[in-house]
Design a protein around this nucleic acid. Structure first.
Length: 964
RNA sequence: GGGCCUAUAGCUCAGUCGGCUAGAGCGCACCCCUGAUAAGGGUGAGGUCACAGGUUCGAGUCCUGUUAGGCCCA
């Protein structure tokens, strides 16, 4: 009975772990096999066919823009969506998921035009008739967009997302375009669509409006002028500064004050209609070399210096708020036409002081020259205040006939000098100087662009709709109360934007999009009614939006029925060439994609899930479109996520870091998804190579845990070997109970879209409950018991159930690994593409009965492990199997448990309960007077160890297993 | 400049209605095992809860301000 005796090598007699499920995941190679298998087995189609008796839960994909490779933002968004879709499916819902792409719009047109210019084809193009030219551009755009869709689709599939990729919705599909025009018709019918002026960047050289992407900012030197606008009512100005008539007399303030403005575009002065101040800025009534003028207090000194003034005095100060409503006289204009289509004008406000919060005192005078026809800010102010949106500049850069005679027909750049000279002569000019600044230029002609008002189409948000007579804004604000926002602050954010948003400008002067089907009569009247839009819609439904560019007005209106109302003779009409804002298109997806495919059944959708930038974009455009047509919001819930930042929390630079494809190659999609699931997506998320490495390590922990379970089930057949339900005090009952707790936590987390919590619970279950506790404890019986011992089979049954349940729980996140593991567990043939964990439901419970005293066991265990560690540190007792534990049990909780189970739970050879003990005693079994020998096979110390017939020293259990 | 949001251990995150000594995991240190082995296990050290005020018997939590950062506007 000596430990040192040469004993047979028992390793081969153990039931050691065995599995084909590799420790090394090799995701880069194996994930594509899963994708292929899911495709061959038509997983998406099969999930739909499962859905016959399931409740439908419709997820609606926001369409990414079809341009370029997907980036980390797409990875985040698509992974979160996929986790939602897969988890809701496994909860037992029918969750269709139609992916979409936003295919129209400027970025694509821009790219295509740049390519055409580069390849020299643009000359040929320009020689074509306008419609033929537009069609040539459109064909090139469509071609480009389809390539991008194909590229992105492949990358999204590589991310292991499941969707109806063979049947996506594209904003270029005729049926989709018809759905867009349907909404437009509904809005037109309610008289919500109107035409009005709006400032745009305008290229004089090309006589066209430009988009932001077509601008290049270059330095330019302009004449900047400080101009005095004479007050219309001197007394009112003094009063605003608290200087009453008595005080004026006393201080001999008889001069008429002026308001001093500053501008770098003197050519816009003829269009001046107001002066803006900031309500909270302090303004001074100052005397500068005899002239009394109003300007921001903290700029008085600097401006006096610029004009080389010698005598400067601040007479009084007042907040900007006090100046509001004061009138002034334009230095050379006496009449402004009442222009500003679509809005009532308040002519009394022309040439008065108004408030604007963009006014600063960083440069200028603190009083901002406001020409609503020539600037975005100015325009917004003009619209808000009801002052004219006056634009006397024509497309060729010359003034029209509404300006003073000396300016008519003059080129605006020449006018800069002329106006300055005129102001000098009339005594309105305080100072003029050259000023160098960054100024937008036309990217093609390299000439400076101007802001100029053009006619655009708008959707009114403050006009009554047919839905209880409420305005779109009112409907939208009301809807905020009914929609669920995750996180909740999304509601406030959207509400704030809805409260302050202007009417929606839905037109663009472009080619790549759905044309606004407006006609013009020979008299210059616009013809667009609900019926005419619907007539065109029917043509578009069949032939696509190309029809607008290919067909005559008469053919486009062929479906226009007489009872639709009087219409102009179609043969006299000409077509308009504005296209719809792409946000109007994507905002119609609930109709053009989802309702169209379900006969109207899939509305409203359960959830929209996009980045927080979409509060301004898709969440809002979808909401307005849906409310306008149906009176209802298109979604029940809005879920938003934040953006990626670098490891220091700074904005992510586009050029830095790995591409998405690099990530798939370096880590595999499951690791990337595991990382995404761990993020606090509601805020900013830090991204760095280091985090993917960490995610890889924690992924491996999960994978190894699953692998260990699988490897101990190689000889287990659940149909053949499953015993009765485990005893409540057994380890197996404990782990099944733990599984049920984690399943409940994880499923609840999925329900609440809390991927981080799901990730956390899953990882901790693998790491703690399984790896550190249960699997460590049951190793001995799995390895050393007779293969078919009831105790071993009991544990295998628990392992099988837990592995089965766990594979399902991780499936929405680790969709490749889960399927691979689950198939290994079930022994599914590699060629069988029709079986997948993703078609299964979550397992909530095994109806396990657990002993109430388990918490006491783990409380005692904590103390016992500390005692054991102390004993080890004291020296001589390194191997826990040489140790025994004597544990106090004052409440008599532990006696119901099997001492062997408890010993296994602590990794020791013997566990004894002593009700009277005060503290845990870790004893060295080698010092036992009776001699606790070590079993050569199980390495445990046990009173039953004896020399056996095969020459080894074995415990009874091992002797039985060996049959000796 | 405005709206919305974020800040807790070296890192990623919990922390409910304001209430015991602020918790996990990773990492780190030390140790064990060598029959999960490019694995597994144990113990331990880490925090002025961004900063400054305020409310309260009591504040990580509520209020105000500041700083840093993000999204959207301007």
């Amino acid at each position: 009975m000596s430990d040192a005796a040469a004993a047979p090598n028992y390793k081969k007699t153990l039931n050691l772990p065995q599995t084909d499920f590799a420790m090394k995941a090799n995701l880069v190679q194996n994930e594509p096999a899963s994708i292929k298998r899911w495709g061959e087995g038509d997983l998406y189609g099969r999930l739909r066919s499962l859905g016959a008796d399931r409740k439908r839960w419709v997820f609606h994909d926001g369409p990414p823009y079809a341009n370029g490779s997907i980036h980390l933002g797409h990875v985040l968004n698509k992974t979160l969506k996929d986790i939602v879709v897969r988890s809701r499916t496994m909860m037992g819902f029918d969750v269709p998921y139609v992916p979409g792409w936003d295919c129209h719009g400027l970025p694509i047109e821009h790219k295509v035009m740049a390519d055409l210019i580069e390849s020299g084809k643009v000359e040929k193009l320009n020689a074509l008739e306008p419609d033929a030219r537009r069609m040539a551009i459109r064909r090139a755009c469509l071609d480009y967009a389809m390539k991008q869709v194909k590229l992105q689709r492949g990358q999204m599939e590589r991310l292991l997302t499941i969707a109806d990729y063979d049947n996506p919705y594209l904003t270029t599909q005729p049926s989709y375009e018809a759905g867009v025009l349907e909404i437009l018709a509904e809005l037109v019918e309610q008289d919500l669509v109107y035409r009005a002026l709006k400032p745009v960047h305008w290229s004089i050289a090309n006589e066209t409006a430009l988009a932001d992407a077509e601008l290049e900012y270059m330095d330019r030197e302009d004449l900047s002028v400080y101009v005095d606008f004479e007050a219309a009512d001197a007394g009112a100005v003094y009063a605003a500064f608290g200087v009453d008539d008595v005080a004026r007399d006393e201080r001999e303030l008889h001069a008429t004050p002026s308001f001093m403005i500053w501008t770098t575009t003197p050519w816009t002065l003829p269009a001046n209609c107001a002066v803006a101040v900031h309500e909270r800025t302090e303004y001074a009534l100052a005397r500068i070399d005899g002239n009394i003028t109003v300007l921001a207090t903290n700029l008085v000194e600097a401006i006096a210096k610029i004009g080389k003034a010698e005598d400067v005095e601040v007479l009084a100060t007042a907040p900007g708020k006090a100046l509001l409503g004061l009138r002034y006289r334009h230095p050379f204009v006496t009449d402004v036409p009442a222009c500003g289509l679509g809005r009532e004008l308040d002519t009394a406000k022309t040439w008065s002081i108004v408030a604007a919060d963009y006014v600063t005192t960083e440069d200028g005078t603190g009083l901002v020259h406001t020409a609503p026809g020539h600037g975005q800010d100015d325009y917004n102010t003009g619209v808000r205040e009801g002052i004219p949106v006056y634009c006397p500049v024509q497309g060729d850069g010359t003034y029209d006939q509404t300006v003073p005679a000396w300016l008519r027909g003059m080129d605006i750049w020449k006018a800069n000098e002329e106006i300055t000279r005129h102001l000098t002569e009339s005594g309105h000019l305080y100072h003029a100087q050259r000023f160098s600044h960054s100024y937008p230029h036309d990217w093609r002609s390299k000439t400076p662009v101007i802001f100029r008002c053009t006619e655009q189409w708008f959707v009114a948000v403050d006009k009554p709709t047919r839905h209880e007579g409420k305005t779109l804004r009112r409907l939208a604000l009301d809807a905020m109360e009914r929609v669920e926002f995750i996180p909740a602050w999304g509601r406030n954010r959207l509400r704030g934007m809805l409260e302050s948003r202007p009417d929606w400008c839905i037109s663009r002067q472009r080619t790549w999009g759905v044309a606004i089907p407006a006609f013009e009569t020979p008299e210059g009247e616009t013809f667009m009614t609900a019926a005419s839009v619907r007539a065109v819609r029917e043509v578009v439904r069949e032939k696509g939006s190309d029809a607008w560019f290919q067909m005559s007005p008469a053919d486009l209106l062929a479906r226009y029925a007489p009872h639709d109302g009087p219409a102009p003779d179609p043969t006299t009409l000409t077509k308009g060439y504005d296209i719809l804002d792409v946000w109007f298109e994507s905002g119609s997806s609930w109709n053009g994609a989802m309702r169209a495919r379900s006969d109207g059944a899939d509305f409203p959708m359960e959830v929209y899930l996009e980045g927080s930038d979409q509060h301004r974009g898709w969440f809002q455009s979808s909401l307005l479109c849906a409310l306008g047509m149906t009176g209802r919001p298109p979604y029940k819930s809005v879920l938003t996520h934040g953006f990626m930042v670098d490891k220091d929390g700074k904005k992510l630079s586009k050029s830095k870091g790995d591409t998405v494809e690099d990530l798939f190659k370096k880590y595999g999609a499951d690791v990337v998804r595991w990382w995404v699931a761990s993020l606090s997506y509601e805020g900013e998320m830090k991204v760095d190579d280091e985090f993917f490495k960490l995610a890889g390590e924690s992924y491996r922990k999960v994978r190894n845990t699953v692998r260990f379970m699988l490897s101990n089930l190689s000889d287990f057949d659940p149909n053949r070997d499953r015993p009765e339900a485990p005893h409540p005090a057994s380890l197996d009952a404990w782990i099944l109970g733990e599984y049920e707790l984690v399943a409940s936590d994880v499923i609840e987390a999925y329900e609440q879209y809390d991927t981080k919590a799901a990730h956390h619970h899953l990882y901790n279950f693998c790491n703690d409950a399984l790896s550190a506790v249960y699997l460590a404890a049951v190793k001995d019986r799995l390895y050393c018991d007779r293969a078919d011992s009831p105790r071993r089979r009991q544990t295998q049954a628990a392992l099988y159930d837990v592995a089965d349940g766990l594979c399902r729980l991780i499936a929405p996140i680790l969709c490749h690994t889960a399927d691979e593991a689950w198939r290994a567990l079930r022994g599914i043939d590699a060629g069988d593409a029709r079986t997948s964990v993703h078609a299964e439901k979550f397992i909530h419970s095994f109806h396990t009965k657990r002993d109430q005293a388990w918490p006491s066991v783990f409380k005692a265990r904590e103390a016992a492990l500390v005692a054991l560690e102390r004993r080890r540190a004291a020296g001589g007792l390194d191997n826990a199997l040489d140790a025994g534990l004597v544990v106090p049990d004052p409440a008599d909780d532990l006696s119901r448990f099997d001492p062997t189970d408890l010993a296994d739970l602590h990794g020791v050879s013997r566990f004894r309960v002593d009700q009277s003990a005060k503290e845990v005693l870790a004893e060295d079994l080698r010092e036992e007077p009776y001699g606790f020998a070590r079993c050569d096979r199980s390495w445990r110390r046990d009173g039953t160890v004896r020399q056996r017939s095969d020459g080894g020293a074995l415990c009874d259990r091992c002797a039985d297993a060996m049959g000796v």
